[in-house]
């Protein structure tokens, strides 16, 4: 069984809980006392991940760090239908990779602002917020034109991919870092769509959506 080194309030760990929930795979959790315990910087944890970061998983003897890398692994291995990370579609894989990197950019900005506000980290919060707004502007425009072309998701597919999962948590939690989403209406609509994916789960600070209108 998959073991997730987890912290409930971490958006990066939430990415994995989300995908595993949607894929319907089971996992066990090793809770890490991230705050205030700083257990991710403890000697035993640094042996698992020398970067001292969450999340990390262990599966069949494989130890993996980095939320995006783990999403790639989980989707490749456990998605029977093969839509979350379609291995036979190079163009789509390229797009997914591009937006996974973008998601890490959201972690570096929106999540940093949140760590500053919620967990009192010492960051240049203004720079982090400005960076988040810059990324959100880009994504909002991308999603708005997607809607105009009949596309609901971040990548050019008729179904969500792990790029949607990677971007979702820190967008949804951005207000906790003082980054409102009012100016990004297409992002807000996309958030509703992500919340309506079968198997969607919440975390603290993320609310569920109501049902969509029956066709």
């Amino acid at each position: 069984m998959i073991t997730l080194y987890d912290y409930e309030l971490s958006g990066n760990c939430y990415k994995l809980r989300l995908l595993m929930g949607m894929l319907g795979v089971d996992w066990t959790t090793v809770p890490i006392d991230f705050y205030p315990g700083r257990e991710h910087k403890s000697e035993w944890f640094l042996k698992i991940n020398p970067l001292g970061q969450l999340p990390v998983i262990e599966d069949d003897g494989l130890v993996l760090r980095d939320a995006q890398a783990i999403l790639v692994y989980l989707a490749s291995k456990y998605d029977a239908v093969g839509t979350w990370y379609p291995r036979d579609n190079p163009a789509l894989l390229g797009e997914i990779g591009q937006w996974l990197a973008f998601a890490d950019g959201i972690t570096g900005t929106a999540s940093a602002a949140r760590l500053h506000d919620a967990l009192f980290y010492d960051f240049d919060v203004e720079a982090a917020r400005a960076g988040a707004h810059r990324l959100f502007r880009i994504l909002d425009e991308h999603l708005w034109f997607g809607e105009q072309e009949g596309r609901d998701w971040i990548c050019s597919a008729s179904h969500p991919t792990i790029a949607d999962i990677a971007c979702f948590p820190y967008i949804m939690l951005s207000e906790e870092g003082g980054v409102p989403r009012q100016d990004y209406p297409a992002i807000r609509r996309w958030c509703d769509r992500v919340k309506r994916i079968k198997g969607f789960t919440v975390m603290s600070g993320v609310f569920p959506a109501g049902p969509a209108k029956a066709a």
């Binding site: 989403r181 209406p185 609509r189």
Partner: peptide
Amino acid sequence: AATYDLPFRHVFH
């Protein structure tokens, strides 16, 4: 807001 901002079952801010 714009009409496209108000799909069914959404709340626009």
